[in-house]
């Protein structure tokens, strides 16, 4: 694990000896640091299993996985940007834009199935590329650039759809969101592939290591001969492409391209990554944690619905659990 915590966490250990340096016996805090998030997840899991018989069933767990797939894909994408020390607030709008454009290409019999998927992702790539260009060339803070893109992409989505949902999508396309393979929903399979790929890129590929270095200390990365601009560009484009993919999956799931879909999704995605241990200041974190973070949020949503907690209280409980989980995870880090 890269970061201020010495021992690291088992799910995103950048080091090869997950036990960390040998030394004085592992303290309680150390243990919390390592297992805090899985622990929080386990506690909530156990609590929900006890509270309602409908929670711990194979079918419900698959539903939870399906429900986190959109947020999960977005969160994996934004993890790349967060690791470089930036932020991407345009995710939700880019998702809507890609969904609308993909939906236009997904009317029955219009194009082969892969076409809308590719087009949706390319739209995402273009938005991410535009973000990256202004961040690296213009040296404008990513918060501002992506805030601007958030509005621009939303506007483009409305233009592209004429303000109305794009419906009448082909059956095949809708399977991307609603289909199953071997009992596993297609969006879950997509999320699993995305997460696995991102994990390999960040842990085992040169460009992944460079992403961490840029976020950890940009000046040192530059002085070590890294092409900081290109590396950031890679992160933003990856993030955009995954937002595009999420938009395609969402459109397929709700069987329309909605110009006003995904409002505030970026915040859920960033929350999942941060819950998972990715630092908002960059250089620390990883995909494994992000997936756990998305899972935690999904389980809470599902559990509160199953328990029939009234809407007003749901919002309060969600907020408290999210902050609490991060608190446990960062317990005692000084």
């Amino acid at each position: 694990m890269i970061g201020p915590q010495a021992a690291g966490t088992w799910y995103d250990d950048m080091s090869d000896n997950a036990n960390g340096p040998a030394g004085a016996g592992r303290s309680r805090l150390d243990w919390l640091r390592r297992y805090g998030l899985p622990l929080a997840l386990a506690v909530i899991f156990a609590g929900l299993s006890a509270a309602t018989p409908n929670f711990l069933t194979a079918q419900n767990l698959i539903i939870v996985l399906r429900q986190i797939s959109i947020n999960g894909i977005l969160a994996v994408g934004v993890t790349f940007v967060l690791l470089t020390g930036g932020v991407d607030l345009s995710l939700g709008s880019v998702l809507a834009l890609s969904g609308v454009v993909a939906a236009h290409c997904a009317h029955p019999g219009a194009w082969p199935l892969a076409f809308p998927v590719v087009v949706g992702m390319l739209v995402g790539c273009a938005c991410g590329g535009a973000n990256a260009l202004v961040v690296t060339r213009g040296r404008v803070p990513s918060f501002i650039v992506t805030l601007g893109m958030m509005t621009v992409a939303r506007g483009l989505a409305l233009v592209a759809s004429g303000g109305k949902p794009v419906s009448n999508l082909s059956k095949g396309f809708c399977l991307i969101g609603g289909g199953e393979a071997l009992g596993i929903p297609v969006p879950v399979i997509i999320l699993a592939c995305v997460a696995a790929l991102a994990y390999v890129v960040l842990r085992h590929m040169r460009v992944g290591r460079h992403v961490y270095a840029v976020g950890g200390n940009e000046a040192a990365a530059r002085a070590s001969g890294l092409r900081v601009g290109r590396i950031k560009c890679f992160a933003y484009v990856t993030c955009g492409a995954l937002a595009g993919l999420a938009g395609v999956v969402l459109a397929a799931r709700i069987t329309t391209g909605q110009p006003n879909a995904g409002i505030a999704y970026e915040l859920d995605a960033i929350a999942a990554a941060v819950i998972g241990g990715t630092s908002l200041s960059g250089g620390v974190g990883g995909v494994g944690g992000t997936i756990l973070g998305a899972l935690l949020m999904g389980v809470i949503n599902n559990g509160l619905d199953l328990l029939n907690v009234p809407s007003y209280y749901q919002q309060i409980v969600k907020g408290l659990i999210i902050v609490g989980a991060v608190w446990i995870d960062r317990g005692g880090r000084r």
Binding site: N54, I63, R66, N301, D305, L306
Partner: peptide, 9 residues
């Protein structure tokens, strides 16, 4: 998502 959860409970 809400409907899926309701179907479960």
């Amino acid at each position: 998502s809400l409907m899926e959860n309701w179907i479960q409970s």
